[in-house]
Computed example of a mutant assay.
Amino acid sequence: MSEIAYVNGNYAPIAEARVSILDRGFLFADGVYEVAAVIGGRLIDNGAHLARLERSLRELRIDSPLPMARIADVEAEIVARNGMDEGLVYLQITRGAAADRDFGFPADVAPSLVAFAQKKNITGSPAAETGVKVLTVPDLRWARRDIKSTALLAQVLAKQAAVEGGCQEAWMVDQDGFVTEGSSSTAFILTETNVLITRPNSTAILPGCTRNAVQLIAKRQGLDVEERRFSVAEACAAKEAFLTSASNLVLPVVSIDGRRIGDGAPGDTSRLLRRLYIEWATNAAGAG
């Protein structure tokens, strides 16, 4: 079966999918995106992702080419046409393609919407058993990190630094020495007194959909959850650490900058929250 993509109203094999070279997403990163997980052939927590998409569009003053309910239909159709049981659906909306390359917003240009699927073993990821290693890097991104913009060069450089350092993820650090978030994930630590810590939402970080769901699950388990900044030193001294994202769910972090976290193996709380999230995601509560 050919991989099928969606481009502005049409479904086509991904090798034939095309957008204009004048599209402002290509020229200016003038667009936003979302990534939703698919488990058991169903989109997970997709209502939260579409709400965040709508907010990102509003912040950049880009009109949605379709109502959110129709975008959800496109995502579901992409899942069906690709025969996907587990993986990710990526969608992107840009301001569109104007006749000329100019920085100002063009008039009378239709926004562009593309979507495609990527098969991935999410629930059975080997990294859930081994844990992942994290490298810290300076946070070089623009000031509006709460918008899920397609401008991801700083994250690309951070991820590459992690790879070259023998790690699987980078945690970005602000000028005051506090962790903001991962290059493609939210950062959590668990203190020795069993308090779960993550940075509060602001323009400094992306409001993570998986982050929010995991916090709710943790609170239902009786865990104290505190939203505050934490330093790299505090993270390295934590009882446990883990990351959350739509593409990885919950993954334990076993080392930061070469320093072992806890006993250097996935912790009990990280494992529990991953299991409970998957249970939540695979029943009616997580489908969206």
Rank of each mutant, 00 (worst) to 15 (best):
A76H: 11
A76Y: 01
E77I: 06
N82M: 05
G83D: 08
G83V: 13
G83A: 14
M84G: 09
D85Y: 08
E86Q: 15
G87M: 06
G87K: 02
L88W: 03
L88N: 06
V89T: 10
Y90M: 06
L91Q: 11
L91I: 09
Q92R: 10
T94D: 05
R95L: 05
R95Q: 07
R95F: 04
A98M: 08
A99C: 11
D100F: 11
D100M: 15
D100I: 14
D100C: 13
R101K: 15
D102T: 15
D102H: 15
D102M: 15
G104I: 15
V109P: 04
V109C: 05
V109H: 04
P111F: 03
P111T: 09
P111D: 04
A115P: 05
F116K: 04
A117W: 03
A117K: 09
A117L: 07
A117T: 06
Q118N: 11
K120F: 07
K120D: 08
K120M: 12
N121L: 14
I122K: 01
I122M: 06
T123K: 14
T123H: 10
S125C: 10
S125T: 10
P126R: 08
A127T: 13
E129R: 15
E129W: 13
G131Q: 08
G131N: 09
K133H: 09
K133I: 06
L135M: 14
V137L: 04
P138F: 12
D139I: 11
W142K: 07
A143P: 13
A143W: 11
R144G: 07
K148P: 02
S149I: 05
L152S: 02
L152W: 02
L153I: 03
A154F: 05
Q155I: 01
K159Y: 01
A161F: 02
A162P: 06
V163G: 10
G165R: 15
G166E: 05
G166V: 06
G166Y: 04
C167K: 00
C167G: 02
C167Q: 00
Q168G: 14
E169Q: 01
E169P: 00
A170Y: 00
A170C: 09
A170I: 04
A170K: 03
M172I: 09
M172C: 12
M172W: 07
V173N: 01
D174N: 15
D174W: 05
F178M: 13
F178C: 15
V179W: 01
T180K: 00
E181D: 08
E181S: 07
E181N: 04
G182A: 05
G182Y: 00
S183G: 08
S183M: 03
S183I: 00
